[in-house]
Nucleic acid binder design. Structure first.
Lengths: 180, 180
DNA sequence: GACTTTATATATCGAATTGATATTATGCAT
DNA sequence: ATGCATAATATCAATTCGATATATAAAGTC
């Protein structure tokens, strides 16, 4: 599933501009799928060109036209087809974990800083989750709730693991003489 | 941190070919950082060009030369510099969760298939973890052990959440008359 | 009142990455 | 003998990333 397909899916909730979709990528989708303008705008253009979305251009003074996209019947059909892929992948790209792999090459204070930063990001995510739970969870489809639940659970587990095991990263290994 | 930096880090454990590094991306690193030949070979060429690794070409009959790369002092210095970035990102790209977001557009049997597939992948990962724990955990740096621990914990939490909540995805919402 | 930041909104561009494919040889099993 | 797995390098189009440019309005701050 590429950015095009996710955009198509988002448009099933109603017409939206590229800017609107970007906001959704930054909020509800941020913890498991990201896309920048450099992916979204070309995706929408391409979808429009192949008739999967329609585009209404609303003229604005001084600014570029606001372009509101809506999914077409053909687009809806194509989306359902794409969703039938029963082997969607789930991939992590963690520069954090990659850094930790080389912790033995780093001074302890740098390791601490990296770990602290990850915990800060986790806290930030949890804050966002609480916000969603207060504000909009009740209006959401079950799928979105499930996805938020996964994020919350997984992130909580990671937080616990990091807090319980971080001390091992800064302990230098015992003198080799003892183990060899 | 890009593929180049990770390759540089892997080479601190000793000289290796692109093929060797690919195997490491497919085993120990697979659950948090992936890279294909299309990234690895250009990365190694570029590192060699800037003197961060040296390359010994071992001629072979009929096949292209085997190229064994080793990190240089300059490469080691550059790596340490790169590792000082205290804000390495941690990003998930999950076509699985994206699909689930649109579960309300899918027939229940497709949802079941998607969820089953994810659980299969999780089981496969856990099998790999057990293999590592049996075979090589004792020789690993603390960093790599920590990273494996994170993977194990996070994946276990995801598995539990999915098993406990998957039924909600196939329950169609109650008749609107009751809630409106 | 002047200044800065934030939000609205589209667009592009080079660089990095992905995923697939090509090539060639060896060894092993059926 | 035919196919399959492994070893090993390499390339390529398509996609994605991250940063930047452009332009205006509103809202906050000194």
């Amino acid at each position: 599933m590429d950015v095009k397909t996710v955009c198509l899916g988002m448009l099933t909730d109603g017409p939206a501009s590229g800017y609107d979709l970007k906001k959704q990528f930054e909020s509800t989708f941020s913890h498991f799928f990201s896309a920048g303008y450099g992916s979204i705008y070309p995706a929408l253009s391409s979808l429009a060109e192949s008739g999967l979305v329609s585009c209404e251009e609303i003229p604005q003074e001084g600014k570029p036209d606001r372009k509101v996209y809506a999914i077409t019947d053909e687009g809806r059909a194509r989306l359902l087809e794409a969703l039938r892929d029963t082997r969607p992948c789930h991939k992590i790209r963690s520069e954090f974990l990659a850094t930790i792999c080389f912790a033995h090459l780093m001074p302890p204070e740098d390791i601490e800083a990296v770990v602290d930063h990850r915990l800060d990001e986790i806290a930030e995510f949890q804050e966002m989750v609480r916000h969603f739970e207060r504000e909009c969870l009740s209006e959401w489809h079950e799928g979105l709730r499930f996805v938020l639940g996964v994020g919350k659970t997984v992130t909580g587990a990671m937080e616990t693991y990091i807090k319980e095991n971080r001390h091992k990263l800064t302990q230098r290994p015992a003198a080799k003489a003892l183990s060899g």
